[in-house]
Amino acid sequence: MSDALKIDDFKGPVHPDWCPGCGDYGVLKALKEAAVALQIPPHKLMVVSGIGCSSNLPGFINAYGAHTLHGRAVPVASGARLANTDLHVVITGGDGDGYGLGLGHLIHAMRRNLNLTYIVMDNQIYGLTTGQTSPTSMLSHRTKTTPRGNVEQPINPIGLALISGATYVARGFSGNPKQLTELIAGGISHAGLALIDVFSPCVTWNKVNTYAWFRERVYDLSQEGHDPANWSVAMEKALQWGDRIPTGLIYQTYRPTYEEAEPVLGKGPLVAQDLGINQSLLDQFLAETM
């Protein structure tokens, strides 16, 4: 298969502007590898982001994309997907973007179960704005804005996804590219909303949650006989933090997607449908008012 897509086919127009060693490089590579594995041509892939270091990702991959407002990637991606169900829509962003400003949208997207793949590059810090606390910063983490240590309980994205109705919930680590590629490919293939929280260390601003810190703690659920169909066990794993932190596919289930439940999409992708109405239909609408 000489015309099979290769990783270079996804090479973006410009080189990433991330710091050397940033975890986001691993995520970008894994996303490309997943697209190769699934043989999704670049023009069928749409990558939507918000604002932040990791949200610059759409510019670094050969695919259609939208770089939107801080916290608003999810609704933009939702609209893009509803309008053209032939597109694979992937959302990429950080913990500030997705779990801070955009958290409300995320919860609704999960219960809505649109066919979207959301990759959160979770570095537990604000990188682009130079090192402030984030919604996932650990308790007592000292940052520029928490000089005495963070006193706010961090968001638990996995637990939140489980109770919000996400149908594919996974955690990756950019230090484990093989697993991450599988998780992303699994998320894109999954019919429904996939949330993939990825430990993507910030080498510049987060001196606590480093590669080494994660390497000492993470383990792969698939090697411990985890059953991703079991919601209760998944919830136990969601709460596991400290010496051992689970990664891998935590939960997967099947529920009709929003697109499947939307009758207007029964006639095919919205973008391919006819526009306007004829006079007899308008007259019918008007007759209802007489």
């Binding site: 939107t68 609209g79 893009a80 309008a83 919205l270």
Partner: peptide, 17 residues
């Protein structure tokens, strides 16, 4: 916020929103 951003997303995909 979702309303307008969804409309923008739909518009990017090419439908009148």
């Amino acid at each position: 916020l979702a309303v307008i951003n969804m409309a923008i997303g739909a518009s990017l995909s090419g439908v009148r929103a």
